[in-house]
Design a protein around this nucleic acid. Structure first.
Length: 199
DNA sequence: CTGCCGATTTAC
DNA sequence: TAAATCGGCAGA
């Protein structure tokens, strides 16, 4: 496995958000390898972004992790019932991250189907297949990403990202750019074109 | 301590 | 279109 190295995460956040598309999120769960190809991301940059939890230098127990050196995870609970996973980016002192909004499953099908729906992969309906991991809360459920993954080293062995996977073809698809989702409260920042996805 | 609210999902 | 559901955060 061609694991992404620590220095990748110190780059500019928008660059990382785009570069993450097509890479593979790997989760090692009870010794089993689960993998998904990243298809959708969003950037959050504290300095200028009212939608960022650490906007304008805000530091709380939850957000302090966003100020650390890139290369760790930031997982938080939203709406009382779903987790969202972010990749912390840039150098220590700058609060920024990339939210993972969608992946397509490439490895660990049965385990993931069971985690998500309590079914075997072959039992899933067309609709369930289509919607299995196409949202931030959904992919966290698929990969069992909860708050005990918060702060996890992305160069460690529990969860990390790879450029390529053995036996998996790297498909090249077109990248699209748009406004971010679900942040209507964020004034002018809601219109930033910081969402990136593969067709 | 109280009360509001959200980087979502799903079912009605 | 609305309900589910709870931790973080601000204000008192």
């Amino acid at each position: 496995m061609d694991k992404v190295s620590w220095d990748f995460y110190l780059q500019d956040t928008l660059t990382i958000a785009k570069e993450l598309l097509g890479k593979y999120l790997i989760r090692v769960h009870d010794g089993e390898v689960l993998a998904g190809r990243i298809t959708e991301t969003e950037a959050y940059i504290g300095d200028i972004d009212k939608a960022c939890h650490a906007y304008n230098g805000k530091v709380t127990n939850r957000t302090k992790i966003l100020y650390e050196n890139g290369g760790i995870s930031y997982v938080y609970l939203i709406y009382g019932m779903y987790y969202c996973m972010n990749v912390v980016t840039e150098r220590e002192g700058k609060a920024a991250a990339v939210l993972l909004r969608g992946v397509s499953v490439v490895k660990g099908f049965d385990k993931i189907a069971n985690m998500r729906y309590g079914l075997n992969y072959k039992e899933l309906t067309k609709v369930q297949l289509k919607n299995i991991s196409n949202g931030p809360g959904k992919l966290c459920k698929c990969f069992d990403i909860t708050k005990d993954i918060n702060g996890e080293d992305l160069c460690g062995s529990k969860i990390f990202i790879c450029n390529s996977l053995e036996g998996i073809e790297n498909i090249k698809l077109n990248m699209k750019v748009s406004k971010r989702i679900g942040i209507d409260y964020a004034k002018e920042a809601k219109d930033f074109m910081w969402r990136f996805y593969l067709e």
